[in-house]
Design a protein around this nucleic acid. Sequence first.
DNA 1: TATCCACAGGAAATCAGGGTGT
DNA 2: ACACCCTGATTTCCTGTGGATA
Length: 440
Amino acid sequence: MLTNPKNNDNHSFNIDRFYKKYLKGPKIFKMREALEPSYIPEELPHRDNEIKKIAGITACALEGDVPPSFLCYGMTGTGKTATIRYVSQKIAQHCEKNPPWWIYINCNIVSTPYRILAHIYNTIEGKEKIPPTGLPKDIIFKKLLGLLDIRIKNTVCFLVLDEIDILIKKREGNEILYDLTRLNENLDSCRACIIGISNKLRFMEYLDSRVTSGLSGQEPIVFHPYNANELADILIQRSRIAFNENVLDQGIIKLCAGLAAKEHGDARKALQLLRKAGELAERKQHKMISESDITKAQKDLEKDHIVEYMLSMPLQAQLTLTAIHLLMKYGKGHIITSGDIYETHSELAEKVPGIKRLTQRRISDYINELSLAGIITASTKSMGHYGRTKLVNFDIEKDLVERALSQIEKIRISGILNHKPIVLLTDKVKIKNSVFRKLI
DNA sequence: TATCCACAGGAAATCAGGGTGT
DNA sequence: ACACCCTGATTTCCTGTGGATA
């Protein structure tokens, strides 16, 4: 973009002065990282029971014996991953020779059997020896067995599968878990222990019986949500590390903890809230975090999260969302069905270069995804003789959707944000709508 | 009470785009 | 150059379904 020389006059934003002022201004943070989810503190408050259980199961690794595989359940932000990492640090401290290996796999990111095997291999090897695609799976399995036998002698290799439920949902998920549970049978000296972490309590139902026997010999460890008092303790502990003295009082911590407790006791959210509030205060050059910073932070976080999600969706999903948005914008009081969304998406696809029309089946999946993300609500309803369909509505502010969509270059440039869906003009839809309104 | 609409949603196949070793 | 592999997105094919209506 070209800069206008006139902008360099005295009225423009002076970045040098801003930075100087910023450096001189009050400092809120001492160590921002302490509020990050990846930070593992010296002590984990209110997780003694879980630590005790995991320590009990894994203790034999200190002597080189292989602990049984086990599972950890709990909602997001209940400290599952943090507890595992905490225990792993402690084991390492108490193991003088041959400390166990810990390999963390987030099944949300490393989501295919091939990539899981490749990830384990590359982590142990310390470099990208296995390419991201191309080789047959069984070759990698054999390579991995060889590597485990050579590199990890007489010790234990912990494979921590975070968000394991995502893996199970896929058809090949059970297969790779079965392969992993059988690693030991094929290994001469190294032994692997699988730790599955899940926030879906019912995912065991989808497990193959061959896998269940290998994974659930141990009682699963259940992480209960934190209550407001427990969250407050966590926040006090972290804020002592993260913030300078006298930047926040007890009331702020209580407010933060209370807000997060409402969200099923999510500690991650509570910490995020505190961090965001700190950033807002620092930006305003305030000496302390105020209540209004917390409320603003909460609103911002929700919006940030949703907008970020919308911007990161594949273009076809964004187009599906645009279709819903336009139906809402131009069809005042119109009842939106999956059929309308499909029609409108097809109209839009014609207008955006490089975009193909999709089938109803695919659009139906996108609607489900948007609903799962909390952007829309979609409820299946039977209209009797008028068939069965999904009724769709927005779950978030409409302005937010328009703002996010207008940030997407392809959508903005093609000008579809002002396109009036043709489907709204058809008689069929008008009749359908009047009938539907009576039925609802 | 059988029919029939307009889809829902599972399973498998296909396709394009990336890669491999020989 | 070739056969072969993996992945993610999508299509194809399919069976299922709630309830107003004829």
